[in-house]
Each structure stands twice: as structure tokens, then as C-alpha cells.
Amino acid sequence: MSEIEFLSWVRGPGFQIATIIFIAGVFIRIAEILLLGRKANLAEAKGSEMSSGLRTVLTRSVPDKATFQRSAYTFTAGYIFHLGLFVTIFFYAPHILMFKDVIGISWPSLPSPVVDAFTVVSIIALLVILAHRMSNTVLRFLTTGEDYLVWLVTFLPFITGYIAFHRMWLTSPTLIAMHILSVELLIIVLPFTKLMHSFTFVLSRWYGGAISGYRGVKS
């Protein structure tokens, strides 16, 4: 298989396979959750489930000060990583073109050196997160094999993207193909692992907020 054949495969059949698994997996997982249903709350409401739920979807992104201080490492590294993830996925011109091709809409991009800087910061944040996971007592206790797998498949697109952007060691078609392949691996793994939180966080925050809000507590 030549380099361009490799690149064509990941852009073609590979992308198709990954997309099918990704979309099917995500849809099935979300349907699985929602269709379980929830009993209507018969207690007299003190607040609206819907608006409290929606508010918590947003507000839970920001921890209160004391909570932040208690888990400063987790919040800081997590924040930086997620911000980097967001910027690199959604504001790099080639990525936007991919979205445009798939979903038909596009938006302005950031200069590539800026995205490059976010990539470096995210890579560092991910390494910090890994080190923290391996050294912190609670995290070590909670960590399963899946957590390391998920870390790896998240890390690979960053590192391959960085290498591809800077054309290190190998030639460009191979590097870009490896980058796309790593993303395909990520989206294939996503529906079957805790990476699903990228979708279900909206549901869980909504439920959590709705349960509290129904009782008149802003969560």
C-alpha cells in the first residue's frame, strides 16, 4: 500500500467504517439511556425541572471556589485539556473543512500557529492528567484499564496531529493518514467507553440539575 493509498483509505473506507460505528454507537447508547425512562415526580414541585436542568448543563462547567481548590489539579488540567481539545477540533481550518463536507456548515478558523500552540498545551495537559491519574491515591483506586485506553486514544490524535503539522520523521501523506486513522480509532472507541460523556454529560447534568431544581435547589 502506497502512502497515498493509505491516505485515501483512511479518508475513504476507513472514514466510512469509523463514522458508521461512531454514529450507530452514539445513537444506540443515547437511545438506551433515554428509553429507560423515568417516573414522573409526584411531589409538589418547587422549581422547574427543565430550566434547572438546562441551567446546570451550563453552570456545572464552573466549580465553586472551594471545590476548585480541593481538586485544583484535576480542574486546571481538565479545563486546559478540554479547551485545547475544543479549539484544535473546531478551529483548525482543515478540520472545519471536514465538518463542512460532512454536515454542510463552516465557520472561521484560527491561525494555524495558534492552533499549534493549543495542541502543545493540550498535550502537556494530557501528560499531566496521566501523571496525576497514576500518582493520586483516589484516581489510582478508581482507574481501570479502560481509563488508560481512553487516555491513549485521546492522546494519539493530538500527537499525530502535531507531528503531521510539523512534518516530523515521515512524509506528509503518511503522517496525515496516521492522524486521520488515530481520530477514527478515537471515534470508534468513543461510544463503548467513558468517552461517551462527551454526549451524555448534557443528559447527566440535566438530570442532576432537574432533580435538584425540582426541589428548589440551584445545583
Binding site: 485515501s8 472514514f15 466510512q16 463514522t19 454514529i23 445513537f27 473543512l97 471536514m98 460532512v102
Partner: peptide, 21 residues
């Protein structure tokens, strides 16, 4: 562009989404 899928993925997305739903 190089970053775009080579095949028509939109159809795949729609069909898969419908099937998966």
C-alpha cells in the same frame, strides 16, 4: 481538500443515524 473524506459521508451519516435510531 485533504482533510475531507473522499467519499460522500453525509449520506452515510444520515443512513447510519436512521438505522441506529
Amino acid at each position: 481538500s485533504i482533510s475531507m473524506p473522499t467519499e460522500n459521508i453525509t449520506k452515510t451519516v444520515i443512513y447510519t443515524a436512521a438505522g441506529a435510531a
